[in-house]
């Protein structure tokens, strides 16, 4: 089984549109949206949910108002400024209906480290599991889709991503599918690292802008750091041919394969509006280019994993 992750460093370079096209062009595959922060792939694939569940990750501290004697040890020991004294809440609330009489945990800042729970002399702090969102296994017109909806503001822990990847592998195994295509998130931090480690290949979608170039270099270095095979797609390449040339030179100097270049075209936005993937929209030039790119990616993938 092959695992392929599509990432970009910079956001908005066209990752999800390209992943949508791959969903259409690939065969015998499973799709999986790992950009749980701002998941969009479902908007193109119109999933029909077959199975779902809640996802819990880590814990969150909650102070029991009755037991708390306001000694303040928790506040003193918290390294994340997540504990507010009662006075603070008073200042913050405009309508003081029921003011907390104890210290309170600010759930946005709480890291779930449990230090306050351990050191509270009154045993006044509960530490329940933290609900992060829901996961889904769906059918789509192309392939099964594994996706999730994270509760806004939640910690996008690598754990949810790892869980989704395990689920995708399970779905692929059960259905004898031989390739999993992941839609990754922007950046180079925790979620991206969890999306990359242990996969067979990364496809980096970039664009010929100063940000696109800068961020692609960083994500390519991250792939190197984790020794993951990589290919680059230059999207909207005709926006700035000079920058496109610079990306090509950078890739050549670093022995990085360019899987292809895609021109800037309104059809990508039109496809999103229609809820279609771009290769369903009948633009022959774009279709041929994307088919060539997919063939190239597929060839590299089979070569890196013998």
């Amino acid at each position: 089984m092959y695992e392929l992750t599509v990432i970009s460093g910079k956001g908005g370079t066209g990752k999800t549109s390209i992943v949508g096209a791959f969903a259409h062009l690939a065969s015998n595959h499973v799709m999986c949206d790992l950009d749980v922060d701002a998941a969009n792939l479902h908007l193109l694939l119109a999933p029909e949910i077959k199975e779902q569940g809640a996802f819990y990750s880590g814990n969150i501290a909650i102070i029991d108002e009755e037991k708390c004697n306001n000694c303040g040890i928790c506040k003193e020991m918290c390294k994340f400024d997540a504990i507010l004294p009662p006075r603070h809440c008073e200042e913050q609330s405009d309508v003081a209906i029921s003011l907390p009489i104890s210290h309170v945990v600010d759930p946005v800042n709480c890291e779930g480290c449990g230090v306050c729970v351990h050191f509270c002399p009154q045993n006044a702090i509960d530490f329940p599991e933290n609900y992060c969102g829901d996961w889904y296994i769906s059918d789509t017109r192309f392939a099964p889709l594994v996706h999730a909806r994270m509760s806004p503001g939640e910690e996008n822990s690598g754990k949810l991503i790892t869980f989704l990847r395990q689920t995708a592998v399970k779905v692929a195994t059960q259905n004898n599918r031989d390739i999993i295509i992941y839609d990754g998130s922007p950046g180079i931090g925790c979620p991206v690292i969890s999306s990359l480690t242990g996969t067979d290949m990364a496809v980096v979608v970039t664009e010929p802008t100063p940000s696109g170039l800068h961020d692609a270099k960083r994500i390519l270095e991250l792939c190197k750091h984790f020794s993951i095979a990589v290919a680059v797609i230059i999207n909207k390449y005709d926006l700035n041919l000079e920058n496109t040339g610079e990306i090509e030179r950078f890739c050549a100097d670093n022995y990085i394969k360019i899987a292809g270049k895609v021109p800037n075209n309104r059809i990508f936005v039109d496809a999103v509006v229609k809820g279609s993937v771009v290769t369903e929209c009948g633009n022959e030039t774009i279709n041929i280019e994307l088919q060539n790119i997919w063939n190239e990616v597929r060839t590299i993938l089979t070569r890196v994993k013998k």
Partner: peptide
Amino acid sequence: PPGTSCPAM
């Protein structure tokens, strides 16, 4: 940064 999780918050 983009998103709605810890970095954006």
